[in-house]
Write a protein that binds this DNA or RNA. Structure first.
Lengths: 172, 172
DNA sequence: CCTATTGCAGATAAAAACTATCCACGATAA
DNA sequence: TTATCGTGGATAGTTTTTATCTGCAATAGG
């Protein structure tokens, strides 16, 4: 069981974007620089977040990314599912049917008990992720992070965020 | 986030071994046949279970595998950790330190909040897995499984299990 | 003692997933 | 018009997973 590195990048970027003011944006290149990540590859992950309506993107100069909704309404589960996909970690291959004794499909109408137990555990995992909002992450960092780190982050955001003309309201 | 197929195989095999009588064993080849799996590859997984003291192996003819302790004291977490390893799914790369602004290591003594939240979720996952014992899986199957399937399983176990001479008590 | 069966370790390799880079394209602010 | 930015596709290197095979050690039964 393993999560891709993109999850870490995506959460950090989303947390950074939570600090940009109003409807301002921040370029993907700045986010990559902020965490020492490969810009080309990070864009792929930011794209997934955009596709899942977690981020919004603005093209052109002065463009970039911003949160598609307030950080209070974005959970870690939203981000993890956007990056890793919605499939459960345990995918039952129904190997109970593959044995030498072939039974009718009607013998397997009930969900495999092993699958049920694994899915139950994953529901607990996702529930815990859904309990943590992006705003919690940011608030915790602002409250307990090292002052030097916070100052550096604020300076970085102030330097790279770009105000937008159009309204921040999103039409779908 | 993805679990290897070996987890499914390992749990099914462990559940099957829970049905062998006393200190009898069942060969790995029989277990592979029972679920239509590649024998060579399944042995790798059974070996991991043996290394983690979940199974015991007996060499020689009439040898094979058996549970190292009662099914009541084997949880799904034991098996998942044996196959997938003990590392958490989310591995913090500390990318917060990789930005253009280099700070002293003392600025990062506190655990990254994102890491903390992800680890908390994984604890919930593992707690749910630890709640399910192998005996629960077997009991549920015996109670609610299809009668034809249960009969086939029992016949298969009866055909392939092999009684042992030595005592089942294990000395470490 | 001999043989057949079984688990074990290592080498090997095919397949899939993950990570990473590059380029052509459309959008747009200045 | 130009420079900046996001988008999508193509490509490729690396790692992980899955799978197979071979030789070796252990041992039950004759």
């Amino acid at each position: 069981m393993k999560l891709g590195e993109g999850v870490e990048a995506a959460i950090h970027c989303a947390a950074t974007l939570a600090s940009v003011e109003g409807n301002s944006t921040m370029p993907g290149a700045a986010l990559a620089e902020s965490f020492g990540l490969s810009p080309s590859y990070l864009l792929k992950h930011l794209n997934m977040l955009t596709a899942e309506r977690i981020l919004e993107s603005v093209p052109g100069p002065a463009g970039g990314y911003r949160l598609a909704r307030p950080a209070e309404r974005i959970t870690l589960l939203d981000i993890v599912l956007a990056i890793e996909g919605r499939e459960p970690a345990f995918r039952c291959g129904e190997i109970r049917r593959n044995g030498p004794v072939k039974l009718d499909a009607s013998a397997y109408v009930k969900l495999c008990g092993i699958n049920a137990a694994m899915l139950k555990a994953e529901r607990a995992y996702r529930a815990a992720l859904a309990e943590t909002r992006l705003s919690d992450i940011v608030a915790d960092y602002q409250a307990e992070g090292d002052p030097r780190s916070i100052a550096a982050s604020c300076a970085f955001v102030a330097r790279h965020q770009r105000p937008q003309k159009s309204a921040s309201t999103k039409q779908v």
